[in-house]
């Protein structure tokens, strides 16, 4: 069964501004998916819908077979616990006035998840490769890459099934980027990642499946390896040709 499925979703901010046009795809448990598009492709809108911050104009989103309904509190609680997010900007995504332990603990506290929170926090920090004494420090004491690790610790602390990663490594320097991608790759043994990104290299390194989005429509989707080897749609070809490559 698919973890999450988006079925024929349309979205428009105004009547003449169609942002998503009949978008359908699904994410299966254990298969990382990369949602690739440029500005105006509608990828951020899809993310908003999946985060429950907006509702589709038509069509449906299902989570483990159940229709997404923001008003259904029992469903939302289960959904929030199962689906967590990591954002692009590691500076804006951490509350500057909270200590790391409070930041990481937020999902546990807000969802009133039972169990030993301190231990869960330590485990999450360990999983993302941060030292234990990080708990009592503030975000500004960390570098961009370390801050992104804190954000990832917050996302995994409640042991979700799916992580929505919104350009999660785009703001990082190259050598930090590869380490965070490796971290996400390791974490995806235990959970599934839906990475929204414009960076084909990062998607190729992390995701087994890829969805190419252009102006609100899916133009191509399938196994990452197949699509990179033989892109069918002209837009996919253009995108691929634009990626800066290392000189041979």
């Amino acid at each position: 069964m698919s973890l999450i499925s988006v079925e024929n979703v349309d979205f428009a901010y105004a009547r003449d501004q169609q942002v998503l046009d009949g978008v359908s795809f699904s994410v299966r448990s254990g298969t990382n998916v990369g949602l690739v598009g440029e500005s105006g492709s509608g990828k951020s809108t899809i993310l908003k819908l999946l985060l429950g911050l907006a509702r589709p104009s038509s069509g449906a989103i299902r989570f483990e077979g159940e229709t997404f309904d923001a008003r259904d509190r029992t469903f939302m609680r289960r959904y929030r616990q199962s689906v967590q997010a990591v954002f692009q900007d590691p500076y804006s995504s951490l509350d500057p006035r909270q200590k790391v332990e409070d930041i990481v603990a937020e999902p546990l506290r807000s969802l009133r998840i039972p169990g030993d929170h301190k231990r869960a926090i330590r485990a999450a920090l360990h999983d993302v490769g941060l030292p234990e004494d990080a708990v009592s420090r503030y975000p500004h004491e960390f570098s961009g890459g370390q801050r992104q690790r804190i954000a990832i610790a917050r996302a995994i602390v409640a042991r979700p099934k799916l992580i929505l990663a919104d350009e999660a490594v785009s703001a990082l320097d190259l050598s930090t980027r590869i380490r965070i991608v490796e971290l996400l790759k390791t974490l995806s043994d235990a959970m599934t990642i839906l990475l929204v990104s414009h960076d084909l290299g990062v998607v190729a390194a992390l995701c087994e499946e890829i969805i190419i989005l252009e102006r609100g429509k899916i133009v191509e989707s399938g196994k990452t390896r197949d699509i990179l080897a033989a892109p069918q749609h002209p837009y996919t070809r253009k995108l691929l040709a634009s990626v800066p490559r290392m000189p041979a």
Binding site: L174, S175, R177, I178, L200, G201, V202, A204, A205, R225, L228, A229, P231, L240, V243, R245, M246, P247
Partner: peptide, 26 residues
């Protein structure tokens, strides 16, 4: 890029190569 001398340059080139390899022959 082909023969980085310094450790740091090697790290950078390795990171870039890793993403490049992931993109494959395309």
């Amino acid at each position: 890029l082909a023969r980085p001398e310094h450790d740091y340059t090697r790290t950078l080139v390795a990171a870039a190569d890793a993403f490049d390899r992931a993109l494959g022959a395309a």
